[in-house]
């Protein structure tokens, strides 16, 4: 009996310490999205460039990177260079596409952003009252979703994409599920 209590005490202390140790690794700002593994909310909204509406459905059958941004967002500026590079890099892939969602922005603001920092060439949806952003559980910008060919969200990146992100994060997910 005496030993049993000692074991229980030891196990509880070790468990608490282990939980603390695991918690050290966590980023409190990185809240896991409950949307991963669930179908992405469909949308069809006006494009930033006054072209035909941007429709999520039309990308079915391909992996899709959905990048939420705004001209008001400082980190989006630093991320933009990589997005340009990624668009160039993946231009030949027929199984992969990218779109942007410019949210909580003005049309002029969004257009100016692309004019000054460069247009990566993919379609940009315009979401001034962040209806799509809320529907997609977006907290802030930039946030990026990776949607599989069946329209299921497979990954959410909170914060800017970084050099090598595609190879490190996206490719392994894409190769795991052909």
């Amino acid at each position: 009996m005496k030993n049993l209590w000692k074991v229980i005490l030891l196990v509880s202390v070790m468990t608490i310490l282990a939980l603390f140790a695991l918690g050290l690794e966590n980023d409190p700002r990185n809240i896991p999205s409950p949307l991963v593994g669930r179908p992405a909310s469909p949308f069809s909204v006006p494009a930033l460039d006054d072209g035909p509406p941007v429709t999520l459905e039309s990308y079915r059958g391909r992996w899709l990177l959905v990048n939420f941004w705004g001209s008001w967002c400082i980190s989006c500026r630093s991320e933009h260079r990589y997005l340009m590079k990624l668009a160039r890099m993946t231009a030949d892939r027929r199984d992969f596409a990218m779109i942007g969602v410019d949210f909580k922005d003005t049309r002029d603001g969004g257009k100016e952003f692309l004019a000054s920092l460069g247009d990566p060439g993919y379609r940009q949806a315009f979401d001034p009252d962040q209806k799509i952003a809320i529907d997609w559980g977006v907290y802030g910008a930039p946030e990026t979703y990776l949607v599989d060919p069946e329209g299921i969200i497979r990954h959410k990146q909170v914060g800017p994409l970084y050099e090598g992100w595609f190879e490190k994060i996206a490719l392994p997910i894409m190769e795991k599920k052909p």
Partner: peptide
């Protein structure tokens, strides 16, 4: 909102 943002 729960479906999109979770427990938080």
């Amino acid at each position: 909102f729960f479906q999109r943002y979770g427990d938080y």
